[in-house]
Design a protein around this nucleic acid. Sequence first.
DNA 1: CTCTAATTTCAGTCTAGACAGAAAAGACTG
DNA 2: CAGTCTTTTCTGTCTAGACTGAAATTAGAG
Lengths: 177, 177
Amino acid sequence: MKDLPLVAQKFILHWGEMGTRWGINRTVAQVHALLFLSEKPVPADEIAKILGVARSNISTSLRELQNWGIIRVVHVIGDRRDHFESLHDVFAMFRIIARERKKREIEPTLRVLRDCIEESGKPRAADAYTRERLGDLMTFFEVATSAYDQLEKLPTSAVLKLAKLGDKAFKLLGVKQ
Amino acid sequence: MKDLPLVAQKFILHWGEMGTRWGINRTVAQVHALLFLSEKPVPADEIAKILGVARSNISTSLRELQNWGIIRVVHVIGDRRDHFESLHDVFAMFRIIARERKKREIEPTLRVLRDCIEESGKPRAADAYTRERLGDLMTFFEVATSAYDQLEKLPTSAVLKLAKLGDKAFKLLGVKQ
DNA sequence: CTCTAATTTCAGTCTAGACAGAAAAGACTG
DNA sequence: CAGTCTTTTCTGTCTAGACTGAAATTAGAG
C-alpha cells in the first residue's frame, strides 16, 4: 500500500469503507478500487502485496468481482499469471451494479411480496391491513423497477442529456406545475 | 414471532435479510418491518417479545430508526410506555431513506473525491491516469445526485405520472431516437 | 420526595463472516 | 510426464460488531 500514490491510498481506503456500508466486503471493494485506478492490468499476487492481505483472499474477491461483471481477466505476453482490469467506463459500471443488485435483491423481494399477498387471501394468514401495506410496498417496487428498466435502456449520452435538462424536463412533460 | 400472521413472519424475516445486504443491521430492519405492518403503534417491550430479542437491543434499533426519520414515538392514553409507528406512505419513506443515504454516504464520497483530485495536483500524489479516473467518478456522482435532487422535489403524484409515461417521456424530450 | 415503571447505557459475551495458510487442483513448459 | 508456477479450495482462527442482562438513568404518579 505504501508504494501507491497518496491519493490512490486515500481513495482505496474510502471505497472499502463505502463497500461495507452497502453490504460489500471491504476487501472486495478495495480490490475494485485498486483495479479501477490502475492503468495496467494487475496480477493477483501484486494486489495481495499492495493491499497487504492473503493471496487466497484476493482470489475470492476477484471471483466475486468477476461474477458482478465489473472486472475481467486479461493476459500479458510473457507472463503466465492472470491479470485483472476494471471496466473503465463509470456509467457502464454503475449500470451493471444496479442491474445486478436489482436481480439479486429487488427481484427476490418482489417475489416474496407477491407470495405474501397471494397467501394473505387464505384464512389466518394475514389481516386486511397487512395485506394493504404489502400491496403498497409492492407497487412501489414495481414502479421503481420499471422506471429503472426504461432508464437502463438509454445510452449514456441520452442519460446525460436527460440529467442536464433537469427541472426543465419535468415542466416540458407537464408533470410539474 | 409465532403469534404473528404467517405472512407477516415471512415478510419480517425477508426484510431483515435484505437489510443485511444493504448494510443495515438485521434486527433494525426487522423492527422496521414489524412496525410497517402494524396497524397500531407498538411499545418496545412488545417488539422485543415478538421478535425474541433483548429489550435493550430493541431500544438501540428504535433509536436508529428514529435517526433515519422513518419511525416516530406516539403515546397511547392510559399507558406510560412509548409506542412506535412507522411512516405509512411508502414513497415518502423511500424518499427519506434515499436522502439519508445520500447525506451519509454519497456526499462524503464526493468530498473524498474532491480532496483527492485537488491533492492530485501536488507532486508525487498521483499520476495523470489516477486523476482522470477519479474525475470521471466524481462526474458520475455529481450527475447522479443532481438528477436525484431534482426528482426528490417532485410530489409523489408527479413521480408516478413520470413513471407511467415511461419510454414516451424520453421520446418527447428528444433524448431517444 | 419516594416509589415504580420505562428507557438507556454499559461491560462483557457470543457469533457470523472475514481472513490466513496449507493443501489440492490446474495449467503450462521443456 | 516431471517439474514448476499459479490459482482455488478448504479448514481452522480471529475479530468486528451484534447482542444480552445488569446497572444506571430518566420520567411520571401519588
